[in-house]
Lab assay of single mutants.
Amino acid sequence: EEPGTYGVALYRFQALEPNELDFEVGDKIRILATLEDGWLEGSLKGRTGIFPYRFVKLCPDTR
């Protein structure tokens, strides 16, 4: 996996908008950016989108 910051999904998130990223509990999401209003941008399984930061637990930065 690529170096960078990752978050592990604490809850299932179902995308409601085309720019959102849906995921299941336990998915490991690569964090790409921190956005305003409590949203993160991340990538998972070749898809990129935004999601609420409270749905993931950030992992320590590992290489």
Rank of each mutant, 00 (worst) to 15 (best):
E1I: 13
E2P: 06
C59I: 14
K28T: 09
S43M: 11
T48R: 12
L40T: 07
Y6K: 04
K57L: 05
D27M: 06
E36R: 08
K28S: 06
G49I: 05
P3I: 15
R63D: 15
G4Y: 13
K28R: 13
G7N: 03
R63N: 15
N19C: 06
L44T: 07
E2N: 14
P18M: 07
R30N: 09
Y6I: 11
L58P: 08
V56P: 08
L21Y: 00
R12W: 00
D37R: 05
A9M: 11
S43Y: 12
R63I: 13
Y11V: 12
Y53G: 15
F51E: 01
D37G: 12
D22F: 13
G4E: 15
K57Y: 07
R30T: 04
G46D: 07
G38V: 04
G49Y: 01
T62W: 08
V56D: 03
R12D: 11
P52H: 02
C59N: 08
K28M: 06
E2T: 13
R30S: 07
G4S: 12
A9N: 01
T34N: 09
P18Q: 13
L32N: 12
G7K: 00
G38Y: 04
G26W: 00
F13H: 15
L44F: 10
G7H: 08
F51D: 01
N19A: 10
T48S: 08
E36M: 00
T5R: 10
A33Q: 10
F13W: 06
R47P: 00
G26K: 04
G42A: 03
L10M: 14
P3V: 11
E24D: 13
Y53S: 15
F23C: 03
L40E: 00
W39F: 11
E24Q: 13
E1T: 12
R30I: 07
A33V: 07
I50E: 08
F51R: 04
F23I: 11
E20T: 14
I31L: 03
E17I: 02
R12G: 12
D37P: 06
R54G: 13
L58G: 03
V25Y: 07
K57M: 06
A9W: 04
P60F: 11
F51W: 05
K57D: 09
A33T: 13
T62I: 13
V56W: 01
P3M: 15
E24V: 06
L58F: 10
G38F: 03
V25D: 00
C59S: 11
P18K: 08
G46M: 02
F23E: 00
Y6R: 03
F55M: 13
D37Q: 09
R12E: 06
Y11K: 15
G7A: 15
A15R: 04
